[in-house]
Simulated scan of single mutants.
Amino acid sequence: MFELSFMRNAFMAGTFIAIVSGTIGVFVMARSMSFLTHTLSEIGFAGASFAVFAGWPALNGMLLFTMLSSVLVGQMSIKESRREAVISAVSALFIGLGILFLSLSSQTASSATSILFGSVVGISRQEVWQLVGLSLLVMVVVMIGYRQLKFDSFDAVGARVNGINSTLISVVFLLLLALSVSVAAQIVGSLLIFILLTLPAASAKYFTHGVAKMIVLAILFAMLGTWLGLYLGYLTNWPVSFFIAVIEVVIYVTALIFQHLVND
């Protein structure tokens, strides 16, 4: 399997994607922003479709669209009373734009499949290094602002009382989330991006309560799903995103059962 260059690229990219997704996912769950991963995935779909239309790498288009829109959409949907309407409007707009850009492109069918479900075969060494660079950027920023981000995510009231600039933290986090969505979509695709950014972290919280421990466990769960998904995809030639989805759901159900047994 590792004799094939595209599998080596996929495993390397998948490892960094799992690290980023597990880390950011813990804060996504703590800040109750799983809804935003859905919205950004649709924005990313439009961005990747635009990139295909313009002849750019899909990742560049996703980065452009998600980075420009993440803060705006995040701030617009802070109030729960208008969150559903904002999500519906933004999702409809960007799904429509994505379909439009694909229809104007000459690569509609294959490009749509790669954007929606990811593409292991299509990841080049250059794209892998781009993913590695973006992943390291996300992790460095998280490490620099870890204490403030943890405080603001898990105790927002206490953070404000202690003078932490919650607005700045929120903006930085939204940008990090946009980067994470764009990075992770290279393996699971824009349609299923929320899997790696929510389920590993959601599972981890049932096994431990320390933030650092949750991050480590979420990374391990994301890595297990990604590695095993790539391996099973190689053996069966079925979509890798399907296996990742099933594995992460199994882990989550196992976590729920574990929590139920512990409480009983």
Rank of each mutant, 00 (worst) to 15 (best):
L174P: 06
K79V: 05
N60P: 00
W56S: 00
L149K: 10
M143I: 14
N165D: 15
V86T: 09
I123S: 03
L174N: 09
A48T: 02
E80P: 04
S166Y: 05
K150N: 11
G55C: 01
W56C: 00
G47S: 03
S91R: 09
I95V: 14
L176T: 04
R160L: 11
G118T: 07
S103G: 09
G122S: 08
V142F: 15
L93G: 06
L136N: 10
S166M: 04
I78D: 01
L68W: 04
V90S: 02
S153W: 03
I115T: 03
G118V: 08
F101M: 07
V52L: 03
I169H: 02
S114C: 05
F45V: 03
L104K: 13
V157G: 01
S106G: 11
S153Y: 03
L168D: 04
G96Q: 06
F94G: 07
E80I: 12
L100C: 10
V161C: 12
R125A: 13
L134V: 12
A159M: 10
A92P: 07
L63Q: 01
L104M: 14
A112P: 01
S91W: 13
A156H: 12
D152Y: 10
L137F: 15
G47L: 02
L59F: 09
L116W: 10
N60W: 14
R160N: 11
G55N: 00
D155L: 06
I95S: 05
Q130V: 13
S153A: 13
L104H: 06
E80S: 14
T66Q: 01
Q107H: 10
S91L: 14
Q75S: 08
